[in-house]
Design a binder for these strands. Structure first.
Length: 567
DNA sequence: TACCCGCGCCAC
DNA sequence: AAACGTGGCGCGGGTA
């Protein structure tokens, strides 16, 4: 059963129940917004919970969570629309061929956050006032129904997983990632010296700067200014064209070692120093805003706090509550395994039989060392042509012709300006008008060599994008299915161990997600059970997306009290 | 003062 | 080893 919710005004909500398969259900009812949590709670406790259909999870779910109510399943119409509007599977549908409408407007996530903060949508001029969720849902269902049988099942899974991701993102922001500000302060003090006011250089950082200045024989220097630093280096006779780490590393000069040390510390201070803690850690929790579907490939993005780039340096401040543990799970070499499954490459499937795919590639005689295997695979998926990666590619192609052929085909498709799709049907955008103009200019009679070269460069660049899109995007789908399956299992665990009314944070729950890695916060006595559920969910994700393809998706797990101990 | 953009580095 | 994908973010230095 589906239940469609529509915000009528700040105070009222229209509730429409759709019986599956029936064209008409019970008449719509209008309830007070304040009564919604109770309604949701009641229907969620029924033997078969409904699927809630709403315009945007970020506008509905935070308030329900704050009222202590969770939902099992939903349809996020905004995220689903975004997928169906572009998907090759539904390209001929009414939804995809219509003129752009209110469902194509992007909702700035910060507007939603503000709405959550003030607890109402009263005074906000949100886009979507004219959005009719019932009509949109019907269009979406028709679009999926009009696809091929495979398209129907794949898109159905993708939309369910994407919507589950929206629920998970809201729940993770609600629960927050446990963060010990005192431990963070100790980490900073150890590296930088005692806390200082913003704008003041901490003692240890200042000492390293003294070393740098001594080595350069200057009395003043602001390494934070690339221009100034570059000039200072050149005056000291060091021939560099930039101040990047990898270029400096190649230089032999007494200033390089302290300078790289300075850059490392300076980065820690500015990106994840005391200001970061003051801004982002409240009541022992880091609550970032996750943006499901925020990346073109389907990966999540984040807004604020750099949630998806937490440096390993500060992960020691991520500490479980007393008596609780983190279960940290990582899908081992996820993207190469995804490529194996998509391409049906038997040789690579054989190499991936164990937990370490890269070592497996060495063991089957395809490459000589594990580092080479890793560099070659990543290069193949990113489209590297030069360097060690490029040199290893022919060898890789001989050993795994189907896998490499698969990404090469995706690259060629992009170079022609055509679209590619992930396994479940998320489709890449078309290149923009500028790109097309460059290509057509180069194909005109009398095109200059420069125009031709420019066009080829742009074509190859778009090819690298589509090459990576199919792998990164399908990996994101696997991760969503993994996480959604785990969430369902954790909910059942909570119901069994704590009770049907267990609050999200009373029992094991997800607190962090990083593309191919998840962190569950749980009471110590649940940790072993959670590890089992994580593995079950991984196996299920593989079956859901790839059926019986002979590819395994092993996960490494660690039960820890500090995130820093996970790897 | 507010914005914009290139640089550089963090994550996967 | 160094030009090969997706992002976020803080800084310096420019402009309106």
């Amino acid at each position: 059963m589906h239940i469609v919710l529509q915000q009528l005004d700040g105070a009222r909500v229209r509730v429409v129940q759709l019986e599956d398969g029936a064209t008409e259900g019970p008449p719509a009812q209008v309830i007070a917004r304040a009564g919604l949590p109770a309604l949701v709670r009641r229907l969620e406790s029924a033997p078969s919970s409904p699927r809630w259909v709403w315009d945007d999870t970020t506008l509905w779910y935070p308030a329900l969570l704050a009222a202590g109510v969770r939902v099992s399943r939903c349809v996020d119409l905004r995220l689903s629309h975004n997928i169906l509007r572009n998907a090759a599977f539904t390209a001929d549908s009414e939804l995809a061929t219509a003129q752009p409408g209110p469902w194509d407007e992007s909702l700035d996530p910060r507007i939603a956050q503000r709405a959550e903060a003030i607890g109402t949508l009263f005074d906000l001029d949100l886009p979507g006032g004219e959005r009719d969720p019932l009509a949109e849902f019907a269009l979406q269902q028709a679009a999926v129904a009009g696809a091929t049988p495979q398209g129907r099942s794949h898109l159905g899974l993708l939309l369910a997983a994407e919507s589950a991701g929206a629920l998970i993102a809201a729940e993770m922001s609600f629960a927050g990632l446990p963060w010990d500000a005192a431990m963070h302060d100790r980490i900073l003090a150890e590296a930088l010296g005692p806390r200082v006011a913003p704008g003041v250089r901490p003692a240890k950082l200042a000492a390293v700067l003294d070393e740098v200045m001594a080595a350069l024989e200057v009395r003043e220097l602001s390494p934070e200014s690339p221009g100034e630093l570059l000039k200072a280096l050149q005056r000291a006779g060091i021939n560099v064209t930039s101040t990047r780490q990898w270029e400096l590393q190649e230089i032999e000069h007494p200033v390089i070692e302290p300078l790289l040390r300075y850059k490392k510390l300076s980065r820690l201070l500015t990106a994840n120093g005391w200001t970061w803690v003051d801004t982002w850690v409240k009541d022992g929790r880091f609550r970032p805003v996750y943006i499901p579907g925020g990346v073109v490939t389907g990966r999540w993005a984040s807004d604020g706090g750099g949630a998806l780039q937490l440096p390993h340096q500060v992960r020691g401040a991520v500490l479980a509550d007393p008596g609780w543990r983190f279960v940290v799970a990582d899908a081992a070499q996820l993207e190469p395994r995804i490529l194996t499954a998509m391409s049906g490459d038997r040789a690579m499937a054989d190499a991936g039989r164990g937990v370490d795919l890269y070592q497996g590639m060495v063991d089957v005689g395809a490459v000589d060392t594990r580092p080479h295997a890793k560099i070659a695979m990543l290069g193949a998926m990113y489209g590297a042509t030069t360097g060690e990666s490029g040199r290893l590619l022919p060898r890789l192609t001989r050993a795994f012709p189907h896998a490499i052929g698969f990404v090469e085909t995706a690259a060629r498709t992009g170079e022609r300006g055509e679209r590619v799709s992930t396994r479940l049907g998320r489709t890449s955008p078309l290149p923009g008008a500028d790109w097309r103009e460059i290509q057509s200019a180069a194909s005109m009679e009398g095109a200059t060599a420069a125009a031709t070269q420019r066009a080829r460069m742009e074509a190859r660049s778009w090819g690298r994008f589509t090459r990576n899109f199919v792998v990164q995007g399908t990996a994101a789908e696997w991760a969503l299915c993994w996480m959604a399956g785990l969430r369902t299992r954790l909910q059942a665990l909570a119901a069994a161990e704590v009770g049907i009314d267990a609050a999200l944070t009373d029992s094991a729950h997800l607190v962090f997600f990083l593309h191919d890695e998840i962190v569950v916060h749980c009471p110590e006595e649940q940790a072993d059970a959670v590890v089992t559920l994580v593995r079950e969910a991984a196996a299920e994700a593989g079956r859901l997306i790839f059926g019986n393809a002979p590819v395994e998706f092993p996960v490494t797990t660690a039960v820890v009290t500090s995130y820093a101990d996970a790897k």
